[in-house]
Design a protein around this nucleic acid. Structure first.
Lengths: 327, 327
DNA sequence: GACCCTAGCTAAACCGGTTTACCTGCGGCT
DNA sequence: AGCCGCAGGTAAACCGGTTTAGCTAGGGTC
C-alpha cells in the first residue's frame, strides 16, 4: 500500500541513500554495476520519486503555474483560455497548477508563494497589463516565466506574442477596401496591454473612427452596439475585441432591424465555433497552437535555454457573411 | 529575498521550532502569551508556511486534482469542462492541479502518484465509466474524492450528479407531444456511464428509436446526421449528446436542404452560447453551479464530513426554434 | 515532606529526497 | 617505499515543516 522510497531501494540494493540518488539521476559517483543494480531494484519495486520531497531540496516541482484574474463566472465563457490551456498541456508532461483569483494583488501574492515554496518550476503570464509589475517581479525572483500574448520583448523574459498592430491594420484596410470610412471598435478590458496596442493601431489606420469600451462579456458587447447604432453618426462597420461581444452585437443589430452586412459590417477578433456558426467574419488565430508554443517556450527556459521572443503567425482574416461593401 | 521560515520565527521569538508550529496551528501546548508573541513575530516577518514542506509530513497539500483524459485538441472546444472548472474555482481557495493525459492507464497512474506524494488533498472524478476502476482505487487509497456527473451512489465516495434518466425521458416526452415517433439519438462516447444511462432511458421511453454513436466532436455529429438523413427511415427528430454535435448536425441538415424544424427537429444536450445563437432547443443546466457544488462537496469531505450524494437540479428544456410539430 | 499531575516547553526524529564532506582502497609514478 | 589522485562509496546535514518523547517547574493532595 505504501510507496517504496529511496530508503527501501537503498536497503534492497545494499547501498546508501546517497548512492541511490546518484544512480537514479544519472550522475557520476557510482559504478555502472551499482547503477544497473539500483535501477533494477527500483523498477521491480515500482519506485516513483516524490516530487514533493524533491521540491523541498530545491529541485524540480514538476508543475508550472497559471493564475487567472477574472470573475469566475465570466471565465467559463471565454473559450480562449481553455483552448490555450489545452494547447499548453499538449506539449507538457507536467501538471498545470491553476488558480483563479479576484485581484491583481492576490495574483502577485500567489506567484511569490509558489516561488518561495517551489511549487512550480515556472509560470505563464497572461493578460499582460500596460507596464505590468509581474515582469519585474519574475526577474527579481528568478522565477522562469513566459509572457503569453504580450507585445514581445518584456525585460529578460521569454515571450510568445502576436502582432496586434499589424493584425488590426489589416482588418481596417480590408474594411476600407469595401468602402467603409466610419468604423467603430468595441474593446476588451482597457487595462490590458493588447487592448491599448490595438487601440493605437486602430486610431492610426482608421479615418473616422470611434472606440467604445467593453469587457469581453456579451452584455457589454450588446450595450456598446446599442450605443453605437443609436448615436448621431452611426458607423458602417464594427470591430469587436472578441467573439462573444461580436455575436451579441450581431443580435442587437438584428433586433434593431439593422441588416448585416448591407447596413452594418461586423468583424470579430478571435475566431471560434461561435463565429463559424454565426457566419461572422473573424480574425482567426490558432489559440491551441499558441498555447502549445507558449509551453515549448517555457520548457526551453526551464532547460536553461536563453529566453526568446517568439512571434506567432499573423492572424488570418476569415471572411464570412457579416462583412460587405458599404451601401 | 528569502522567505522567513519557521526557524527564523523560532529564533526571533526565542522559542523552539516545535513551539512555533503549535502556536501557529492553534493547538494546545503553548501558553497564550507565547502564542501571541509568536503570531506577532510571524506577522511582522511576513511569514507564510510552505505547503511543500507541510505536505511532506502528511498534512494539507493545499490543492485538489483533476485529470482529464481527452485528445487535447478536442478538449478546447468543450466549454463544459471549462465552465465546470471555473465553477469549482469559485468555491475553492486552493489551487487546482490539472493534467490532461492520453489514456485511462496514465490517469490512474497519476492519481496514485499524486496520492503517494501528497500533492493533492483530494480529487474530482469526471467522465465516469461503466464500472469505473477509479472508484475502487480512491477507496483503497483513502484519497478523498467526489464523483462529478456520475449516477449517484458510487461506493463510499461523495457524488454530485444529475438525473440523466429523468432528463432524457422529459426530452422524449416533449418530442412525442409534438407528434414525433421516429426519434434518433446521437451519443457521446459510449464508454461513459452517463451515455449508457441516457441510452437506456432513450430506449425505454421512445417508440421507434435509433441510436448512432458519436464522440462529441463536430465531425462525428455531422457524420451521424448524414447517416441518419440518408437512411431508409429518416427520423423526424434527433437528440444530440452535446451542443457541438447538435450545431454540426443542424449545418448538415441545412446543406442537404432538410428544413429545421418543419422537417427535422433538433435538441441539444447541454445549453451554451452556441445553442443560444443557433436558436437550438437545448437541455440546459448550469454547469458553473454544478462545478461549484462539486467543489463544496469535496471541501466537505476534506473537512471530515461524511460523503454525501448531491443530486443536481433537473436540467430544464429550453425550447427555441429548432423543434416543432411533426409535419 | 513526599508524591503525583499537568501545563509549557525543548530536543530530536521524521517525511523523502539532494548534496556535501569525508573515508577507503587501489593503481600509477617517482 | 612513499606519495598522489581518483573512483566509488558512506554518513550526515539540509530543505521546512509536524509530531512525539521527555524534561522541568509549579500547584494540589494527603
Amino acid at each position: 500500500m505504501k510507496r517504496p522510497t529511496i530508503k527501501d531501494i537503498a536497503a534492497a540494493a545494499g547501498v546508501s541513500k546517497g548512492a541511490v540518488s546518484l544512480a537514479l539521476n544519472g550522475r557520476s559517483g557510482v559504478s555502472e554495476a551499482t547503477r544497473a543494480r539500483v535501477l533494477e531494484v527500483a523498477s521491480t519495486l515500482g519506485y516513483r520519486p516524490s516530487v514533493t520531497a524533491r521540491a523541498l531540496s530545491s529541485a524540480s516541482a514538476d508543475a508550472v503555474g497559471l493564475v487567472l484574474v477574472r470573475p469566475p463566472r465570466a471565465l467559463g465563457d471565454e473559450a480562449f483560455f481553455f483552448q490555450l490551456i489545452a494547447g499548453m498541456q499538449s506539449e507538457m508532461s507536467s501538471a498545470l497548477l491553476l488558480q483563479v483569483v479576484g485581484s491583481r494583488a492576490e495574483e502577485i501574492e500567489l506567484y511569490r508563494r509558489w516561488w518561495a515554496e517551489h511549487r512550480v518550476d515556472g509560470v505563464f503570464l497572461v493578460d499582460l497589463l500596460v507596464s505590468d509589475p509581474r515582469v519585474e517581479l519574475m526577474s527579481s525572483l528568478g522565477l522562469p516565466a513566459v509572457v503569453v500574448g504580450g507585445a514581445g520583448h518584456h525585460g529578460s523574459l521569454a515571450s510568445v506574442w502576436a502582432d496586434d498592430h499589424a493584425a488590426m491594420t489589416s482588418v481596417v484596410e480590408y474594411l476600407k477596401s469595401l468602402g467603409h470610412r466610419r468604423i467603430a471598435r468595441v474593446t476588451g478590458l482597457s487595462s490590458l496591454l493588447h487592448t491599448v496596442r490595438r487601440d493605437a493601431a486602430f486610431v492610426s489606420s482608421v479615418v473616422d473612427g470611434v472606440i467604445v469600451a467593453g469587457d469581453y462579456t456579451a452584455e457589454s458587447g450588446a450595450a456598446a452596439t446599442r450605443e453605437l447604432l443609436g448615436s448621431d453618426a452611426v458607423p458602417t462597420a464594427i470591430v469587436y475585441d472578441n467573439d462573444v461581444m461580436a455575436v451579441a452585437g450581431a443580435e442587437v443589430a438584428a433586433s434593431l432591424g439593422v441588416s448585416v452586412p448591407s447596413e452594418l459590417s461586423i468583424v470579430a477578433w478571435d475566431d471560434s465555433v461561435l463565429c463559424q456558426h454565426g457566419r461572422l467574419t473573424a480574425l482567426s488565430r490558432d489559440t491551441f497552437a499558441f498555447g502549445a508554443r507558449a509551453a515549448r517556450a517555457l520548457l526551453a527556459v526551464l532547460e536553461g535555454a536563453a529566453p526568446v521572443d517568439v512571434e506567432d503567425v499573423l492572424p488570418e482574416l476569415v471572411v464570412r457573411g457579416s462583412t460587405g461593401p458599404v451601401a
